[in-house]
Amino acid sequence: MNEEVLFYYALFAGGIVCIVLSVLLYFWLREDTGIEFSTFGRLVLMCLFGVGLVWYTAPSLKYVFYHDYATTKGMCTVEYDDQSSPRTIDLYYDETGDYFSFFDRADLGAYGPDVPYTCHVTTTKDHAFEIFYRIYDFKTGKLLYSSE
């Protein structure tokens, strides 16, 4: 499993944990001494944060769980940001305007808009989460890097 899929599962699990923990803490604190307004507000915010994470990840759950992916192919440019943390590689499709970002670093000879590559990016069917990518030489079609 790659980092992107693990990140997706971490977001989904984090949402579930926030919801369950906020509900359990509410009932536990309410029974003992009563609950203060500030504590109640924090629990509501934690529950809303968890609901937001689940709301964001749930539409793609069936695609990730059943490995039902779509692949976008075409000419792209590769940008690598060495200053960001975590390091990311960004793939821009020139014709369609699609943009994909991965927690990875492809060891290519050159980066930037002047160097075209052929990219195959696999995403969930709704294009919400990136799964993996392959970068090919534009002229020869030779595989240069794969994140699988």
Rank of each mutant, 00 (worst) to 15 (best):
Y69W: 11
D81Y: 01
E95P: 00
Y66D: 08
T77P: 00
W55P: 00
D81I: 00
V54K: 10
G109Y: 08
Y99D: 05
L24Y: 11
F103K: 08
P113T: 11
L11A: 04
W55L: 12
A70E: 15
L21E: 07
Y93H: 07
D114R: 07
R30N: 11
E36H: 13
Y99I: 02
Y92G: 00
I89Y: 01
G50H: 05
E79I: 06
P86L: 00
S22D: 14
S22W: 13
T39I: 14
P59K: 02
V17E: 00
L29A: 12
Y80E: 09
V20H: 01
S38E: 07
A70Y: 10
M75H: 04
A10R: 12
Y56F: 15
A58E: 13
F49S: 11
R42A: 15
P113N: 07
M46E: 09
P86E: 00
G52Q: 03
F65Y: 13
G52A: 07
T71F: 01
W55Y: 15
L53W: 06
V20T: 13
Q83Y: 07
S84Q: 12
L108I: 06
T77R: 08
I89W: 00
D32H: 13
Q83V: 02
V44H: 03
G41S: 06
L11W: 15
Y8R: 11
V78P: 08
V23S: 02
A106R: 02
D82G: 13
V5L: 14
T77M: 05
I16P: 02
A13R: 12
S84W: 03
F37D: 07
S101I: 13
F100V: 02
T71V: 11
T33M: 14
Y26K: 05
Q83R: 15
F37I: 13
D107G: 09
E36R: 15
V115S: 06
S60E: 15
D114C: 00
A70D: 15
W28L: 08
Y92W: 15
V64M: 14
C18Q: 09
Y111P: 08
G74I: 01
Y8F: 13
K73V: 15
G74A: 01
V23Y: 15
Y8H: 06
L48D: 01
G34I: 06
P86K: 01
L108V: 05
E79R: 05
V20D: 01
Y111M: 04
G50V: 03
G50N: 02
W28Y: 11
D98S: 10
Y69S: 03
V17M: 06
L24E: 14
P59V: 04
Y92R: 13
K62C: 02
P86I: 00
L43P: 06
A106Q: 04
I16D: 02
L11S: 05
Y99M: 09
C76S: 08
Q83H: 06
L45R: 14
Y26W: 14
F65L: 10
T77W: 06
P59L: 03
Y69D: 08
D104G: 06
G50R: 11
W55V: 03
I35N: 13
Y69Q: 03
I19H: 00
Y69H: 05
Q83S: 09
R105H: 09
I89C: 08
L29V: 10
